[in-house]
Design a protein around this nucleic acid. Sequence first.
DNA 1: CCTGGCACTCACACGGGCCGAGTGCCAGAC
DNA 2: GTCTGGCACTCGGCCCGTGTGAGTGCCAGG
Lengths: 338, 338
Amino acid sequence: MLSERRLEVLRAIVQDYVGTEEPVGSKALTERHQLGVSPATIRNDMAALEDEGYIAQPHTSAGRIPTDRGYRLFVDKLAGVKPLSSPERRAIQNFLDGAVDLDDVVGRTVRLLAQLTRQVAVVQYPSLTRSTVRHVELLALAPARLMLVLITDTGRVEQRLIDCQAPFAEASLADLRARLNSRVVGRRFTDVPPLVQDLPESFEQDDRGTVSTVLSVLLETLVEETEERLMIGGTANLTRFGHDFPLTIRPVLEALEEHVVMLKLLGEAKDSGMTVRIGHENAHEGLTSTSVVTVGYGSGDEAVAKLGVVGPTRMDYPGTMGAVRAVARYVGQILAES
Amino acid sequence: MLSERRLEVLRAIVQDYVGTEEPVGSKALTERHQLGVSPATIRNDMAALEDEGYIAQPHTSAGRIPTDRGYRLFVDKLAGVKPLSSPERRAIQNFLDGAVDLDDVVGRTVRLLAQLTRQVAVVQYPSLTRSTVRHVELLALAPARLMLVLITDTGRVEQRLIDCQAPFAEASLADLRARLNSRVVGRRFTDVPPLVQDLPESFEQDDRGTVSTVLSVLLETLVEETEERLMIGGTANLTRFGHDFPLTIRPVLEALEEHVVMLKLLGEAKDSGMTVRIGHENAHEGLTSTSVVTVGYGSGDEAVAKLGVVGPTRMDYPGTMGAVRAVARYVGQILAES
DNA sequence: CCTGGCACTCACACGGGCCGAGTGCCAGAC
DNA sequence: GTCTGGCACTCGGCCCGTGTGAGTGCCAGG
């Protein structure tokens, strides 16, 4: 177990290193923080911290920098979440309030997060799986060609074209439309399947095939079309990473472009509360020198999607966490209103 | 006017520089190309080319590199468009054929272009303004709340919610839907406005307000919602730029993230044929050290949108142009089929 | 008009020496 | 037991002088 002071030393090291981007030595530490002890004492503490794997020296005669493990301890035990200033909060609200549709909300959120944190922002579109159905519409584009439109409570709209084997009477269509809506509106996607299972039976023999087709397309849309999307922004901030560029930044850019990778990353995060994954804690190889801060957001009590930022392990954790949490909160509000 | 051989020297310089990324000297030139003259002669030619502003020396005693003007001449007079190999063509077709919807087509195209050219790919979504209407649907979500769905010939679907002042009878709705479709299906967006102008007059007094509202939303969608979208990919290729990184790459990333900037860029290109903008020919400041190769693509005879790549001025122009043209052609085919 | 020769210029790589920040350890003080 | 000041040591980074080689411009001769 580390003594109180040693934890304090670790905190100081993290803070200084994040600020200066340079290895921090014992003397500099005593000068910049009121630790009340001499550099020699700090040196002993640092040696102990190094033994425990919390800090490391890049070169024999350089200062120390935190390891991933050190950042972990810092985040878990030493750092709080720094709330935003009230001008910042107002700016967020103003900026997000101007959004006109879902795409716009997500787009603005990405830009906002990127600007606030000066890092790469990742925002997942509200997921279909956790949403509820606001409305289902069925229209006949041609006698044997239908279009299914699904509107979610988060404002997302999905449409599918359906080719039927046989023409479908307008009356039957209206009937199906009405029954569908009465059963599924307001339901969560995952609850829908059992609710519509028996629908074909209540139709005439001739129409059952078409009804089944429609239902299967609907279920496909609900489930398989959990094809989750996301938007990414602020990649220009990657250039602030370090000066050993190409090697550092390239794999990160590659990972960011693979939305599948990013979705997996978000999926691994906790559903509620904030998740911070530091350096090697990220499974993906390209991201082992980055930290990822994510949090769920939603229109109501429950999270429907996640958002977060990707930055160097050497990031301002309290500030970043504060910004991420605040943005998630406001986006949730905006979604609830619309 | 430059002699034949001097043009040949310029071509050789461009080719070598693009290949090696290093300034090319007179001796190396004679060794790698059969110019039939000695280095001394080449030196004279190079001096002349430098006087004319086609090449420059980064340092007093280094080789020459092409200037923007040099590349311009190369592209205009010296370079052809290099056709793709047939395996490449097959790969393109296979890859694009797997697309399931418009988003997927655009996404695959971006990845394809980025991979083929090893540069940043930019693909504009098929523009609404040049498309035609495949179908318009109107549905009542609630007595006084309508939804307008617009389907284009390129498979794009736009939807809008409409709040009406007064309830709108189902019969009137069906009537409006039918009339709308009979007038606008198959029409180009720009032709629609005069065709629907008089519609409100043919409805009952009570419904005219709602009809007008619907029409104005439709026109808004057609015109204002020429909010053109685009997709960008392959930014990781930027890391291959040079070794003087941050300064070069940063403004480029910033420009790429500003979709408005990129759309303007595409808008400035010729509507038909390929456009190559080299270095300072690009108005945007962040892109003055890049070249942009764009071409229009479309489902039929006419271009409905543009795509292209952004890369260093020192790029393989013939190869890039070949890839861009080929991809545009195949995307056009895919769109026409769907 | 082309060529070989020649003197000149410079960017860059290499190597040595100095500097200073930072460390570990130890003996002594509290 | 813990902290402190002192001390010897390490080593990365910086400055600087030198050498090298690629590349140039110019000129006289074919």
